[in-house]
Simulated scan of single mutants.
Amino acid sequence: MIIKSKEHIVNNLNYIIRSAVEEDAKELSKVRVQIDGETENMDREAGEAFIDETGFKELINKDSMSSRNIFLVAEVNGKIAGFSRCEGSELKRSGHKVEFGVCVLKEFWGFAIGKNLLAQSIQWADSNHIKKITLNVLETNEKAIKLYEQNGFEIEGILKMDKQLSDGNYYSTIAMGRINDNTLR
């Protein structure tokens, strides 16, 4: 689905959150690899599960046409600083929910880009009668967990020893969900 662009100014940084377009695909491929290498909060290491320009074009087109998906980018001075995606299911039993994921380049941490991508996604979900948003977050990412809780997400489960990080230790993944009470029947 396509949304209307929204401008933000945080700590003197101007950026726009908008729907991804095909022309973003090449840059998204590079940005995703860079982000994966900047933090261990992601599921992947840099270069793993690589999505090339064609793959991103396919995702963008699929998401633009689907009422159950949304692909957002945060743009700073014409460059992508981060992105988020909500993906719904075509299965009837799971059609009421979407899964949220977000990533932001490290140089743009502290400008509420992730927070605003989340807020825009929640607004989209609520206005499109999506009953539940789910996400997974690494237990060490306390800042993200706090942000999600502040936005109505609750811990629904813990996947123990789910990820092995560069220090050789195993860490748990926190499964979280946000239910939109206004859409319940």
Rank of each mutant, 00 (worst) to 15 (best):
residue 93 R to K: 14
residue 158 I to S: 07
residue 80 I to P: 09
residue 95 G to F: 00
residue 83 F to G: 11
residue 177 G to S: 15
residue 165 L to P: 02
residue 127 S to T: 13
residue 78 G to S: 07
residue 136 N to V: 09
residue 136 N to W: 06
residue 49 A to F: 14
residue 36 D to M: 13
residue 42 M to S: 12
residue 17 I to D: 05
residue 36 D to A: 13
residue 53 E to W: 09
residue 26 K to M: 09
residue 107 E to F: 04
residue 62 K to D: 11
residue 4 K to P: 05
residue 36 D to Q: 14
residue 170 Y to C: 12
residue 161 M to L: 13
residue 52 D to V: 00
residue 39 T to L: 02
residue 91 L to I: 09
residue 94 S to I: 05
residue 94 S to V: 05
residue 6 K to H: 04
residue 51 I to C: 08
residue 59 L to V: 08
residue 48 E to R: 10
residue 89 S to Y: 02
residue 13 L to G: 08
residue 72 L to S: 12
residue 68 R to Y: 12
residue 44 R to M: 09
residue 95 G to E: 03
residue 9 I to Q: 06
residue 88 G to C: 08
residue 28 L to C: 05
residue 21 V to I: 14
residue 62 K to R: 14
residue 143 K to Y: 04
residue 22 E to H: 00
residue 114 G to F: 01
residue 43 D to K: 04
residue 94 S to C: 10
residue 4 K to G: 02
residue 105 L to M: 14
residue 148 Y to E: 08
residue 134 T to H: 06
residue 129 H to V: 07
residue 129 H to I: 09
residue 169 N to H: 13
residue 120 Q to F: 09
residue 167 D to W: 02
residue 110 G to R: 10
residue 152 G to K: 08
residue 176 M to E: 12
residue 17 I to H: 06
residue 76 V to H: 05
residue 112 A to M: 13
residue 85 R to T: 07
residue 145 I to H: 01
residue 149 E to W: 06
residue 120 Q to W: 05
residue 22 E to L: 04
residue 176 M to C: 11
residue 37 G to D: 11
residue 171 Y to E: 08
residue 105 L to Y: 08
residue 94 S to W: 07
residue 30 K to H: 03
residue 35 I to R: 14
residue 70 I to R: 07
residue 156 E to F: 06
residue 20 A to F: 00
residue 56 F to C: 01
